[in-house]
Design a protein around this nucleic acid. Structure first.
Lengths: 243, 243
DNA sequence: CAAAAACACTTGTCTTATACTTGTCTACAT
DNA sequence: ATGTAGACAAGTATAAGACAAGTGTTTTTG
């Protein structure tokens, strides 16, 4: 398949920025340096950087250089993260308590989603103001999680640790009755309703990198989805919209 | 029987695009390359690609190339189409049974959302294959619903009847235990979990026009949300896609 | 010591040139 | 109607380079 050079470079740089290779506020290598590194002309480097600028990841000042825009991670995940993002936005410092950290053979459903035979499974409780907030199970391909420790996943969100530019996600939201095990972890009565959310996160090439399952007690949580404005005008005529 | 070459090629390419052989947003091989690969003339390749374009699967820009167009359109679609839409796609004809149709003073929450004192309240059951599928309550400002009859709302989706261009929506998804009344309507045990969805739909000027509340039995339904990201790199220079 | 000038660096914005791509024709064969 | 072959126009990607303008540091000057 044909590849467009500046898109490749943009992907590469996006990954570095998201992974924090370039600390926030610090400058990126100059266009000339990047040009030498990627063996591409300055025009091509610029197009890559400009697409990143359009995405709000980086910015530039004449005579100074390119630098990582304010909060690179927030920006990237802003469109992706929901629950954790909402917690952070509402000023609640999320805490994590790891209750399982193991490399295991992938169960059928997980193997099908991640296309990987061995996976790292991390199960944890999210707390907000000391109260259990969610039971989260995350699976990721073993080769991606090899360098991770239990302390790593306790300290930082999973996305940050992988150092991969995320490209999108598919999320399935459902409801269920809580299982006895989760009821104990969440401190809710057995059989009470929970909101279940399963998310498959992919990188910029569309390869699945994370499968996560969130279980929230219904009385504390709800999901807010903004359906963008532009959608209606984008949709061709005759297309049925929401009621 | 004679085989039509360009249809064969179109089928082949359609398969590749659908299978994700060409990642969404990336460029397909050029017409010249495909011409060599299929050992067919460029005109034939073009006819195949053009049929795919008519189907909305791919798009092309002069000087740039052909690329998978599914991403932006599908994603926005995925965000706006509801369960009813998915039902229709999967070949199930949704039926509606109106159980209430009344102009009433707006209760506090509804008045706050719609900014209207008098509203039309319609409560109905959605059926799929004769089975109750959802209990839906829709409120709309009385002045917008004046010309509607009970038969209208039974026959057509609400949004079609209003004749207003919709501009977006905010959707809140939560879980709960079913109320006794809804349990009877849905034919599920009292206390079983349900998925609750409240949506505020606005017109293109941002004015709220519809407030709807959907209650789904948890065992039959789940929500799928596509979270797109980094669509910017899809488009050639100057053209930016919606997010 | 302090202000000014010089310098080395950066991005921003142009050219010029080549190779490649789609868009659109015409002519001809089956 | 379908397919092949070819030619041309218009647009894009990339390279290489030149120059203006902004920034930060260093050196010189008053």
């Amino acid at each position: 398949m044909r590849t467009i050079r500046y898109q490749q470079i943009a992907d590469d740089l996006r990954g570095r920025v998201a992974a924090g290779s370039y600390a926030a506020g610090r400058v990126l290598p100059s266009e000339a340096e990047l040009s030498a590194e990627f063996d591409a002309s300055r025009v091509t480097i610029r197009r890559a950087l400009e697409t990143l600028r359009d995405e709000g990841l980086v910015d530039a000042r004449q005579g100074f250089g390119w630098f990582v825009a304010a909060a690179p991670l927030r920006q990237t995940l802003g469109q992706l993260v929901t629950i954790e993002g909402q917690m952070a936005e509402s000023g609640v410092e999320p805490q994590r308590k790891i209750i399982e950290f193991a490399f295991v053979p992938a169960p059928g459903r997980v193997r099908a989603a991640l296309k990987s035979d061995n996976v790292l499974r991390v199960k944890r409780i999210n707390l907000a103001d000391g109260e259990p907030f969610a039971v989260v199970t995350v699976w990721c391909p073993a080769e991606l999680g090899q360098h991770l420790s239990r302390r790593d996943v306790e300290r930082s969100p999973f996305y940050e640790l992988l150092g991969i530019a995320l490209g999108g996600a598919t999320q399935t939201i459902g409801a269920d009755s809580v299982t006895p095990a989760d009821a104990a972890l969440l401190g809710v009565p057995v059989g009470s309703p929970v909101l279940c959310c399963e998310r498959l996160t992919k990188d910029t090439h569309g390869r699945p990198v994370l499968l996560s399952e969130h279980v929230f007690p219904a009385h504390r949580t709800e999901f807010v989805v903004d359906l963008p404005h532009a959608a209606a005008s984008v949709a061709p005529s005759g297309l049925r919209l929401v009621e």
